[in-house]
Simulated scan of single mutants.
Amino acid sequence: MEKPAYARVLLKLSGEAFAGNGTSVDVDTTTAMAHEIAQVHADGVSLAVVVGGGNIWRGKVHEAAGMERATADYMGMLATVINALALQDSLERIGVPSRVQTAIAMNAIAEPYIRRRAIRHLEKGRVVIFAAGTGNPYFTTDTTAALRSVEVGAEAILKATKVDGVYSADPFKDPSATRFTQLDYLRVLELGLEVMDSTALTLCMDNGVPIVVFDMNVPGNVRRVVFGDPIGTTVSRSTARVNGEGVTHA
């Protein structure tokens, strides 16, 4: 029987993913994401999730109007909790046990983030959803994903996006943009590609955590990535360099 390529992964979901084609939290979209996670869970893969909050709160807009950065960031952290609870509800309704852990204590609705407890939940077959970022302003949810993946021993970060990988330019604006199939961490930094912010990328590089960027909108893609199918773009330590660039193109 086919075996997964990874025993434990961390799935990074942007806040925009929860909105579907609208705003806030779209029920059908959240349900679809839950079913994608359920497929992987049924295969016995240990899975954690980090969620963003951009569908509810965009701090940069308010910062531009004069809001203090720390205040905007804390409000963004609260937005991630709403998305985490919505995803938990969708998972529980289809029979997938899950726990929400928050970096900011709010004991009435979620567990506080405790690393050893999170690992124990994963060992027991529960999906753990990490919310409220790192609990500190000035850090993105990308950095949260990198940090939590290292803390719980995830073998890869699965970054779900609306495109099928990392491109040399914005494929929606530049028809000549080419898609990378593999990239080295350092090459991502050199090219200034928007895979993850530099803090998150460096943390992954230092700890050897590969990042797989793929299109979440294609049904079954989460499972394909977990089973090692060559879709999307993989960012990792290069074992060989192609044309001195350390990358290959699709």
Rank of each mutant, 00 (worst) to 15 (best):
Y6G: 03
Y6Q: 05
A7N: 07
R8E: 15
R8A: 03
V9C: 03
V9M: 01
V9E: 00
L10G: 00
L10S: 05
L10H: 02
L11S: 01
L11G: 01
L11K: 10
K12Y: 01
S14Q: 05
G15M: 11
G15R: 05
E16C: 09
E16Q: 11
A17N: 01
A17W: 03
A17P: 00
F18H: 09
F18W: 09
F18P: 11
A19Q: 03
G20C: 11
G20V: 13
N21P: 03
N21M: 03
N21F: 06
N21D: 10
T23C: 03
S24V: 07
V25W: 00
V25N: 01
V25Q: 02
V25E: 01
D26V: 01
D26C: 07
D26W: 00
V27Y: 07
V27S: 08
D28T: 07
D28L: 10
T30W: 05
T30H: 08
M33Y: 14
A34K: 12
H35I: 07
H35D: 08
H35C: 05
E36D: 14
E36W: 15
E36P: 10
I37H: 08
I37F: 00
Q39N: 03
V40R: 01
V40F: 08
H41T: 14
A42C: 06
D43T: 09
D43K: 15
D43S: 15
D43A: 15
D43V: 09
S46K: 02
S46Q: 15
S46A: 14
S46M: 14
S46W: 02
L47F: 14
A48F: 00
A48Y: 01
V49Q: 10
V49A: 11
V49P: 12
V50F: 01
V50K: 00
V50T: 12
V50G: 02
G52Q: 08
G53S: 10
G54I: 15
G54E: 15
G54W: 15
N55V: 08
N55F: 06
I56N: 03
W57C: 02
V61E: 13
H62M: 09
H62D: 03
E63C: 01
E63M: 13
A64D: 12
A65F: 08
A65Q: 12
A65R: 11
G66P: 12
G66E: 14
M67V: 13
M67E: 12
D73G: 07
M75F: 05
M75Y: 04
